[in-house]
Design a protein around this nucleic acid. Structure first.
Lengths: 215, 215
DNA sequence: CCACACTTACTTACTGGTTAGTAAGCCCGT
DNA sequence: ACGGGCTTACTAACCAGTAAGTAAGTGTGG
């Protein structure tokens, strides 16, 4: 009898398409993160959500397409803590980068997936290589822009290409620190190390001490 | 008849064991670099030296053992331009790091193999993970030591752990720049970017401008 | 309100391909 | 004539993708 009144929670039986896809994406992130794309199989992914590998293909068509959606999924998670606000510029961008690093220290799976897939992507014809390349290009643009903002703010004239060089160094240091942290979490404090490294690059680039204060 | 007189050139026919192993190691470096460890097969390696995959196993026993020898092989190549001199300290170490970066810009295969294997190594139970971990630990020790040398030289008192933080940043930036360079060689000048990034970290750490002059 | 048509979410079973590793034997140089 | 270097031939495992079937839903016309 009480069942009729419980119609407020309508869908308990079959998972909706959207929900199931999300489950599979989360599982695929774990699998690709812990085994890599080539070594991680659709059977592994399927087992984690309690279906067969054919069921996964029913939702995503092919393993390549699944990977693409996993990468987009990571992008969504990456900016969700910004809550609608667009990606910031100037000093706020660097604060955002450090904040992301701090959050990442509690999201090992996603960091690992990113590191593994980025490393794998430099192999010939890897399906993720264009995604990673694009990602680097976008980051390079955004960060060098922020560096130029800071330079203008402080009346510093930057040599040609200096902003891009700084941007590349910032991106590099974040990726490299993640690798070290994954292999030995005790050897690196992800957030602190990231803050230190970015401050170093900015200080050297702008010629005066730069401090990134936690928001 | 003339065959008998040709015995003056003794070893043209069958390659010696040592020489063959070296050929296979070079081939394996190319294959693991271009396809990764898991995706690169023994058949690929064997084809490059004109034998079958069973021939490779005859020399190395298993794929894992081959990987280990490839990693050791890379270490040998990496320091061979030092010609017997041991790994330097102080400012000489950082000069050495930049020099290595410059040489690496013409050794894409080795850089790629290192990047791919390092990325792969964070996957569960990867045979290279302990090698990479060890490598990071050794580098961290050597570089932080060199940072302390420079600090002493310049009468700078470093906060606790600052040398290690700087070392981590230097290692990170080198690995990260290699990744970016592999994905888009035009976007990064490997040697210049490395020099810039290391100088930044050292300048920020030591509180006064540091320049690394090419030897 | 219910039967019929259709769709969704899978499963089972299979194909064709690739893999590392093993075993046995051949050939060539010494 | 013997042993190292190699090949051929094979095994057992695993892979992505396909095809066909099934059960449980959803929508619709009468």
């Amino acid at each position: 009898m009480s069942e009729a009144t419980e119609q407020a929670a309508p869908k308990v039986k079959r998972p909706t398409r959207a929900h199931r896809r999300e489950e599979i994406l989360a599982a695929a992130t774990r699998v690709f993160g812990s085994k890599g794309y080539h070594q991680g199989s659709l059977v592994d992914v399927a087992a984690q959500v309690g279906i067969t590998h054919a069921g996964v293909l029913h939702h995503f068509g092919s393993k390549d397409k699944l990977l693409w959606e996993v990468l987009e999924y990571r992008d969504r998670v990456d900016v969700q803590h910004l809550e609608g606000k667009h990606i910031p510029g100037g000093m706020d961008l660097f604060r955002h980068l450090v904040t992301t690093a701090r959050l990442n220290a509690d999201r090992r799976g996603i960091v690992q997936a990113y590191a593994v897939l980025t490393g794998e992507s430099v192999t010939d014809g890897h399906p993720a290589s264009s995604w990673v390349g694009q990602r680097f290009a976008v980051l390079r643009g955004e960060i060098s822009e922020a560096v130029r903002d800071l330079a203008t703010e402080r009346d510093v004239r930057l040599p040609d290409g200096e902003a891009e060089r700084a941007a590349n160094a910032v991106i590099a240091v974040m990726d490299g620190l993640q690798l070290q942290w994954l292999l030995d979490p005790d050897a690196v404090d992800l957030a602190e190390a990231t803050r230190f490294a970015i401050e170093s690059v900015l200080t050297a680039t702008l010629g005066s001490t730069v401090q990134i204060v936690s928001p």
